[in-house]
Computed example of a mutant assay.
Amino acid sequence: MTDHDASRGRDGGPNAPATDGLRPLVRELVSIPSHEDATAAGDAIESWLHAETDAAVERDEQGNVFARTGDPDAPTLALVGHHDVVPPAASQTAVGDDGEERYVLEERDGRLYGRGTADMKGAVAAAMCALRDADPDGAKLCFASFVGEEVGGVGARAAIEDGFAPEYAVVGEGSTNYSGAGVTDVVVAHKGRRASTLVATGESTHASIPEEGVNAVYRACDAVDVVRELAFPQTTVMGEPVRGSLAVTEIDGGTAWNVVPDECEVTIDERTVPGERAPLERAESIAGVEWRVDQDLPPMACSDDAFADAALAAARESQSGTPEHVVKPHATDAGWLADAGTACVICGAAESGEAHTDSESVSWAVLDRCYRIYRRVAEDAKAFA
């Protein structure tokens, strides 16, 4: 327990007051632009951790920030987030008196508005405060904030390749208002995303003599018919159904109205589920068609029931609502961690549909709740570690 924690004690009630220092920290982090370069945001995180905690703080070559505290021989529980954001809308930026661009912050009705509030600097700040205040029991506590989550998990993947391998992780992506309004749930699974392309080739000729060529668009359409007949991937995680999807989203072929095309490309968006993929390779049964995978963001399934249950217990103790184990529809860095062997859950302040919007915001009350959840999980780690 640090000196900062001496007067606090355990933050027990579901309606406890604002966490000391959380709001100014959120405002500081959110105001720093980090859509093109997350360095300044990483600097602010690193500086705060050095000043406010006794943890061992590190920064890797990618710009990921880590802080570790507690028994070095115990299993590691990581509180994970990311400090890069998607590009802001014009209304979300302004130039300060110093000539530097800043993100615009607006506070009203118990919420903070601005790029990165929900996705996910608010939860990053809550995790930082939890690291500062928690007295972990049964686990070494680690904080990790990655770069490049919004561009395919660049930071998380690099960290894993460099040996980042916590036994457990609470990833602070959004899980609020999933089972019901005003409730912060615990995500035990999420879908992945596999983006792929069907490339159909043929033989060009003049459109007045189509029989002397091979129409690549026709081949592509035949391949699309194969895709149309494939079943969506689906599975069950801890009793929760997870159903993926499959959709052709783009088709591009031809160069002129009077030329039979010799190439056509078809884009496919597949939402994958743990352990199941659609057999898209079947499209290659059509002559002249090749299937190419362009991006594959892995799905996530929590691999440890006791950890998932302990996280849910912490969530229930930290709010007046009744949270549940739920499934998240899109990919996060938890997929990369789970794929590497970490037992993951997701719990965070962002509400469904809030991230990446021009009016992005986060509730102060829910950020306080997330702080309590993260701290409780750390201090009750003997329940699962």
Results as ranks from 00 to 15, higher is better:
D109A: 14
D3Q: 12
A311W: 00
R23D: 12
T76M: 10
T76K: 03
A127C: 11
E240V: 14
L79D: 02
A144Q: 02
G63I: 02
D262C: 08
L105A: 05
G9W: 11
G153E: 02
T19H: 03
C302K: 05
Q92I: 08
P75I: 06
R282C: 02
A195S: 14
R372G: 01
D162Y: 07
A195F: 12
D137R: 12
G42R: 02
L112H: 00
L79P: 00
E240W: 04
E149P: 07
T235Q: 09
W336T: 01
D222G: 09
G174E: 03
D185N: 08
E317L: 13
I45M: 11
A334R: 02
D222S: 12
L297C: 06
D162I: 07
V260C: 07
A165T: 14
V248A: 10
D71R: 06
T201M: 05
H4F: 14
P17K: 04
A16R: 10
V186D: 03
G153P: 04
S179Y: 04
V65S: 03
P274L: 04
V65C: 05
T332Q: 05
D119S: 11
E107A: 10
T255N: 11
Q92S: 07
A158Q: 11
T272S: 12
A181I: 09
P233V: 08
H325E: 06
V289Q: 02
R27A: 13
D294Q: 14
W48G: 01
T267L: 11
D137M: 03
V26H: 01
